[in-house]
Design a protein around this nucleic acid. Structure first.
Lengths: 234, 234
DNA sequence: TTGACAATTCAACAAGCGATGAATTTAAAT
DNA sequence: ATTTAAATTCATCGCTTGTTGAATTGTCAA
């Protein structure tokens, strides 16, 4: 199931060898175009489902340029995954800080914590930048993979977990850490699948619900998860 | 990230050409060995991460035999996925029927419905047959894939969804179908990741929780999900 | 103006890919 | 006994894979 080559890609390599004139550079830099195309293709087909040639074609770039910019394939994958992880972590952390200061001196509620965790993803998906939608699918792929998950999720998201779990501890006094971690895990799974946008719910609900209706997904998800936390960790 | 070839596989091809003597047949038939190995490898590396040669080696058969038994690669994948889907569907349906008859004439509770949905998976994973553990990871892979999900999940699991949603409708009178489907989707995501057994929770909880502690995962998951349903669909 | 460096294409590499036709051996049916 | 069919290995096909070295063209500082 390797991706089709799509010879009629919008961005083609110039065909001329050597460094290009600085005046006819494309609006999006080539390095960034590679990352964007990689993000989309990896999200859809997984690491092994994408060949460097397909990727090069989609990005409108020569194959060799990928290695020039990002080194071997595995390193490219890590770079793609890392790029938005940083941003997402910042967004979530600042959302949590804001919730804390709004609630002070009271402890912030479970609902608000979960909102701080989920809203940045919803905002990202709702945004113009379609790269975020691709990244969410990539996140679902990595999160559910026994090969990549242990490597990349731990590397780029473990610190964030600590902060949110600490907040949840205060919101749910008397709860056991073990319970919190398990609930966090359920939240992570529900979120992954939901924002992976696979079109599954559309078919399963006979068209009643729509995968790309992030508002609908989001509105229900916060109370759903929060109620779960309260029941198990209460 | 193609799988390593593992030349020292336990089951080797005999090396002798032609149909084997019926008295020195292996205890597990070759066709079944192929399916088992495929299940394990596809679950770990995804469709494109597994080559027929790696698979043949793991199953201890010649490459050509895979095609002989199961046709092209895609068809093999479908067969692997289908095999246990049938069984799982039966188990879940009969668990639901039993819950219904136990509750009669009252309507069965949300908790019991979710238990009927989850317990068969837990029993499967807890069983001796390690193939079930692999299948759960495969289910997570397919469920979260935008390529395979729409094809295989709908094909093999949509009927089951209808039955369970119908039961949930009665357990949650006055609820909107849209709400039920979204909650069902959250449940599906939480379940996928949890039973995919990626080792993620082990690292995230600094060793406090263990991925393979299915009992722990299961005990908390039912109240978690049920509380979510009640809050959103109540 | 020269020389170092950056950015790009091209061509090739060895290895590996899925698939299949032919040959071979045995089992089962007649 | 013969024939037919099933189960297996082997060799090979044409293509694709990730990676790299060499050549080319442009920029920019000395």
């Amino acid at each position: 199931m390797a991706t089709s080559d799509n010879k009629t890609a919008e961005n083609r390599p110039t065909g001329k060898v050597g460094r290009p004139r600085s005046d006819d550079r494309e609006k999006t830099e080539r390095g960034e175009r590679i990352l964007n195309a990689a993000e989309e293709l990896f999200a859809l087909h997984g690491y092994d489902g994408v060949t460097l040639r397909t990727l090069a074609n989609a990005a409108g770039v020569d194959v060799a340029l990928i290695n020039y910019y990002f080194g071997p394939k595995q390193q490219l994958f890590d770079t793609v995954f890392q790029r938005r992880a940083k941003i997402l972590n910042q967004e979530r952390l600042s959302a949590l800080e804001q919730a804390k200061s709004e609630a002070a001196p009271e402890a912030v509620t479970v609902e608000k914590i979960i909102e701080a965790f989920l809203r940045p993803l919803e905002v990202a998906q709702e945004s113009q930048d379609e790269g975020w939608r691709n990244y969410c699918a990539l996140l679902a792929y990595v999160n559910n993979s026994a090969v990549w998950g242990p490597l990349l999720m731990s590397k780029h998201y473990n610190d964030l977990v600590d902060v949110f779990v600490e907040a949840l501890r205060h919101a749910l006094p008397g709860s056991k850490d073990e319970d919190i971690y398990w609930c966090y895990h359920y939240m992570s799974g529900a979120m992954s699948l939901t924002f992976a946008n696979t079109g599954r719910i559309d078919r399963m609900s006979h068209g009643l619900c729509r995968s790309d209706d992030f508002q609908a997904a989001y509105d229900r998800m916060i109370p759903f998860i929060a109620a779960g936390f309260r029941r198990v960790c209460g």
